[in-house]
Design a protein around this nucleic acid. Structure first.
Lengths: 204, 204
DNA sequence: ACAGAAATACCCACCGGTGGGTAGATGCCT
DNA sequence: AGGCATCTACCCACCGGTGGGTATTTCTGT
């Protein structure tokens, strides 16, 4: 049985390369190759896919949002995320939205193919937990509100602007801010922004 | 005549994909595929390459540094940079270190192949100037000292720490900082850090 | 020789974020 | 019912970065 795979990545050079590599395999058929989340949804409306392989960082809809959307509209389609970011933080997010796998881009094409077969067969493909007990960032779990505040911080909003846009007081924003700092172990605002970038929380 | 090409990218999935796509072409031969700048130099010491195709963002040595190094040691080898960042700023840097081309990762495999042939033939491959006269960031030209200061800022150094590590006064650091802000049109520290990330100035 | 860029350094004033607390009101899970 | 997480809000104090200036020395290109 041949697996029908849809590729989603804004980098054509990667997409077309992967197409060439995966199409060479007898049990995988690339039934689409698009550069944006919206295009992926449009393609899925036309034809069925067994597995969607998507990049995380994309302009507009990112991989997590796409996975969440696919989960709602096509629950039988499996979703495999590719990321160039630190997986520890994203893994939790990927599980949260119901994705079936998350692989770093340093994965080989062969491993990717194996993972595609794995998730198509009902399994999940997440990288090993990489047990880092030294108080690393693997356990960073931000609340929805904190994620929202962090997003606005990254978008260059001041505390006053954040307070206005969320209809809360500036002191509350400062409290959220402190909690985010504590959880991410950031030493300064710069460290926090770097954290956001390193974990794919910023749109390109 | 067959062009000998060396691929450099820390993302195996892209590298192996590109290998498959380019090896399918009769006039291109992939003579190596490595994941780091140091490995690329080691490979070049073993065998000759006509064109090196390298990613910009890599841990350790980045694409610009690799290109500069190749320029010194193997002046006849051509160097083509691939980047996922905004090209405007990097283009100037790429020209500065003597690279022969800079392409966004949104380029198609076919265009990449054309550019490989182009630079191998003695030409250069830089994206169109994308004339943006509306005071965009295409003209951002930081001085060496400013680049140094910006790097330290991104590494979470305070002004005092920067002053100490560069053996200058804090006021001078503040002056550099102001000039960087003016040139990059950043509205806040967050905007500045975002600029650094968007232009590939931060190591992964 | 002269213009211009680059790097250095200082002045003053301001405010916004940082760090340290404490605490009430929800709502959810067991 | 009790426990826990989350969201909300306030207090106080401090300092570091921001924005506005001006000015000197050195070097480079023409």
């Amino acid at each position: 049985m041949v697996l029908r795979v849809l590729l989603v990545d804004d980098h054509r050079v990667l997409r077309e390369g992967l197409e060439a590599a995966l199409n060479a395999l007898p049990d995988i058929a690339i039934i689409g190759s698009v550069g944006a989340g919206a295009d992926a949804l449009a393609r899925l409306a036309e034809t069925h896919a067994d597995v969607v392989v998507t990049d995380q960082s994309m302009p507009g809809m990112d991989g997590l949002e796409l996975a969440a959307s696919i989960r709602r509209s096509y629950p039988e389609t499996r979703c495999l995320l590719l990321t160039m970011h630190e997986e520890a933080f994203l893994r939790a997010e990927a599980r949260r939205v119901g994705a079936h796998g998350l692989l770093p881009k340093s994965t080989s094409a062969e491993e990717l193919a194996r993972s595609i077969r794995l998730v198509a067969g009902g399994g999940t493909a997440f990288p090993p937990e990489a047990a880092a007990p030294d108080g690393g960032r693997e356990g960073v779990r931000l609340t929805p509100r904190e994620r929202q505040v962090l997003n606005l911080i990254v978008q260059e909003c001041s505390n006053v602007q954040i307070a206005e846009s969320l209809f809360i007081s500036v002191q509350t924003v400062e409290t959220h801010r402190k909690n985010i700092f504590r959880k991410t172990k950031a030493q300064s605002l710069v460290g926090l922004i770097n954290f956001a970038h390193a974990n794919g929380l910023v749109k390109p």
